[in-house]
C-alpha cells in the first residue's frame, strides 16, 4: 500500500533520526533501509532525503563526516547528536500521542 505524500512528509525526520540513532549511515543506505523495512510501502523520492538531512544537520540534530566506506568509496556519514537523541525521544512520544488520537477519531473510539 502506498501512502499519500502529505502523510509521509511529517514522518521523514523522525524516521531518519531513528535510523541514525542505531548507527551512523549515509544517504543511499538510509533510503534502501527504509524501503526494506517498510517492504516498499514508503516510496521516497530518493533525492528528497538530502534536504531533510541537511536541515537536521543545520538544526544541530545530526553531524556529518566524509569517510571511506568498506568498498573504498568516500561517503558522507551522518550521526545523531545528543540534541538529536533528545529530539527523537520527544518526536516519538508526540507521534504516538498523535497517532492514537487520529486512530481514535477515525475509528470512532474515545481517545
Amino acid at each position: 500500500m502506498e501512502f499519500r505524500s502529505d502523510l509521509v512528509k511529517g514522518s521523514v525526520a523522525p524516521i531518519v533520526l531513528k535510523l541514525l540513532s542505531e548507527r551512523e549511515r549515509y544517504g543511499y543506505e538510509i533510503v534502501k533501509l527504509v524501503n526494506e523495512r517498510t517492504q516498499g510501502a514508503f516510496q521516497w523520492k530518493e533525492g528528497t532525503l538530502y534536504p531533510c538531512l541537511h536541515q537536521l544537520e543545520a538544526d544541530g540534530l545530526l553531524s556529518s563526516a566524509w569517510r571511506e566506506a568498506e568498498s573504498g568509496k568516500q561517503r558522507k556519514y551522518y550521526r545523531v547528536t545528543r540534541k538529536g537523541r533528545t529530539e527523537l525521544a520527544s518526536r516519538t512520544e508526540e507521534w504516538a500521542a498523535f497517532s492514537k488520537t487520529v486512530t481514535a477519531l477515525l475509528m470512532g473510539a474515545t481517545a
Binding site: K45, T48, P51, H54
Partner: peptide, 20 residues
C-alpha cells in the same frame, strides 16, 4: 528518475542550507 525532481530538490537543499 528515482532521485526525483532536481529543481524541487535544489530549492529544498537551498532552503536547508540557507543559514550555512
Amino acid at each position: 528518475r528515482a532521485f526525483g525532481d532536481p529543481e524541487e530538490i535544489g530549492e529544498k537543499l537551498w532552503q536547508a542550507n540557507r543559514r550555512r
